[in-house]
């Protein structure tokens, strides 16, 4: 075993390749299909972003003009702002609540399995259908949420019908949908914890709080990073809930990048502009994911 380790260390690349080669046949079919589905649209999109093309008219090559125009397009820049605002809240809040829920559902109590099933229902429910129900709940005159506010003595809110409250309201839906996702990932981390360190810590007279920060947290950190990466990607890509509930409105107050993109492509048929938005959008997602992956590596070694 020690000998094998040494050879791997001496030539990591060749050893890795030797290990991989026999299994390539297992991987190729999936790889070919996914690259075909990814790469063809990508080449097409990049090419389109260099053209002025309005569906129904002829396309003309205009170089980087679409990008230049985007940089001064207020609606586009605002949609980036909305996306960042939305993403920060839609990542942090489900992360905190999901971690707390995981700690709760990790404890043993009667009916835990049943309650846990109830708890993960939202992430399985069809987002479009759920958004429909939230739309009715948000109704300023007849919605049940304003009634619930009045029960606890709070003034009614305009929810998704006012520019100031629309994004926080949409965040509520996002929290509702995706807290279970974070919970499940973190729960997996908690389940994989060894018991020995806790036993040792108990013997040494450690407090609950100390055990959490010194043992649980470092061991669960990689899982938190996985949840963080997934959540960030999904929050940046948010579309369905906003499209159904507020349609980017009122005005353009909740128009995130994906909604702006959809409007450009399928409402205004501005394929060139929309393609340029896609390229910029993907750049943002990749950059952020790289930062998070880097953080994950650091968390692993820390």
């Amino acid at each position: 075993m020690a000998g094998a380790d040494v050879t791997i260390a001496a030539g990591t690349r060749t050893a890795g390749e030797r290990r991989l080669r026999p299994y390539l046949l297992f991987i190729w079919p999936a790889l070919i299909v996914s690259s075909a589905v990814i790469i063809f649209p990508w080449i097409f999109t990049v090419w389109m972003s260099l053209n002025d093309w309005h569906i129904g008219s002829k396309q003309t090559f205009i170089g980087l003009d679409n990008y230049v125009n985007l940089m001064t397009n207020r609606r586009f820049l605002e949609s980036i702002g909305h996306t960042i605002y939305f993403t920060i809240l839609a990542v942090i809040l489900p992360m905190v609540l999901g971690t707390v829920s995981a700690l709760v559902f990790h404890k043993k109590f009667r009916g835990r399995g049943f309650f846990r099933t109830l708890f993960i229902m939202p992430m399985m429910a069809t987002p479009v259908a759920v958004s429909l129900i939230w739309t009715m709940m948000f109704h300023p005159q007849l919605g049940v949420l304003n009634y619930l506010l009045s029960l606890v003595g709070l003034p009614p809110s305009q929810w998704v019908y006012a520019p100031g409250t629309v994004i926080p309201s949409l965040i509520l839906v996002e929290i509702w949908l995706w807290t279970p996702f974070v919970m499940i990932i973190v729960l997996g981390g908690l389940a994989s914890l060894p018991t020995e360190p806790y036993e040792a810590a108990l013997i040494d007279g450690a407090s609950q709080w100390q055990m959490f920060w010194k043992i649980t947290y470092p061991l669960v950190a990689p899982f938190l990073v996985v949840a963080l990466i997934m959540r960030t990607i999904d929050a940046l890509k948010v579309f369905e809930t906003i499209w159904v509930i507020s349609n980017g409105g009122p005005g353009t107050a909740s128009e995130v990048l994906n909604v702006y993109l959809y409007a450009q492509a399928f409402a205004y048929n501005q394929v060139g502009t929309a393609s340029a938005v896609v390229v910029v959008f993907f750049g943002i997602i990749v950059a952020l994911s790289l930062v998070l992956l880097w953080a994950r590596q650091k968390a692993k070694w820390a």
Binding site: Y23, S34, K237, N258, L261, S275, F282
Partner: peptide
């Protein structure tokens, strides 16, 4: 089996691409 995690990264890429971006070309 081959511990080829770089291959898995390609799949992550398809998760990262916004679904809308496939739509125009497809």
């Amino acid at each position: 089996k081959a511990r080829a995690h770089k291959m898995a990264a390609v799949l992550l890429l398809s998760r990262m691409t916004p679904g809308l971006s496939y739509l125009i070309p497809l």
